[in-house]
């Protein structure tokens, strides 16, 4: 259990640094900015208590916000995905899936399940984030396009990172 906690602290640090130092500087024609750091919330164990889920989501977002001078913006979006996570998991999985497995990982639940899971979570996060960033519905489709393209890139990065870490274990 202890080593598990250290593993999550490590993945927190790696994801936050990767996000603020590298991914935030990716720009493809002003549209695409992947937010891989939410992988942390995606891969928490199934039995994580709900209050911890929300707290971790909020703190993770706040951590990103401090680096990017956008206090409250990422925190709002990550709290939101932490909130919908239990319902999303219930929605897409049958009962025995949850009983047999402990970690929402591609190596345990297969590509199809994990793809649906990350699709819903990433889309919710990015739509929430991009609309709260512009704080207006004017230029609705411009923002929509930005969030959809960024979501696509984030999902690709999440899937790649899943296969990369699966090999090591």
């Amino acid at each position: 259990m202890n080593s598990g906690i250290f593993k999550y602290i490590g993945s927190w640090l790696i994801l936050v640094l990767l996000q603020v130092l590298l991914l935030n500087h990716i720009q493809i024609s002003g549209y695409v900015n992947p937010y891989l750091y939410i992988l942390f919330i995606l891969t928490l164990p199934f039995n994580t208590p709900n209050y911890l889920l929300l707290l971790l989501g909020f703190l993770l977002g706040l951590n990103i916000d401090i680096f990017t001078n956008t206090l409250g913006m990422h925190a709002a979006a990550t709290t939101f995905v932490a909130f919908i996570r239990p319902s999303v998991i219930n929605l897409i999985s049958s009962r025995d899936v949850l009983e047999l497995n402990q970690l929402p990982r591609i190596s345990e639940l297969g590509f199809s399940w994990f793809f649906r899971y990350s699709l819903i979570m990433v889309l919710s996060h990015h739509l929430f984030l991009f609309y709260i960033e512009v704080f207006t519905f004017s230029g609705f489709f411009h923002t929509l396009l930005r969030s959809l393209l960024s979501s696509a890139l984030t999902i690709v990065l999440i899937l790649v990172s899943q296969y990369m870490t699966a090999k090591q274990n």
């Binding site: 989501g57 977002g61 956008t70 925190a75 709002a76």
Partner: peptide, 11 residues
Amino acid sequence: LFEAISIGLLV
């Protein structure tokens, strides 16, 4: 509560 804090900070 967390959302209220976030939006408060943002605004």
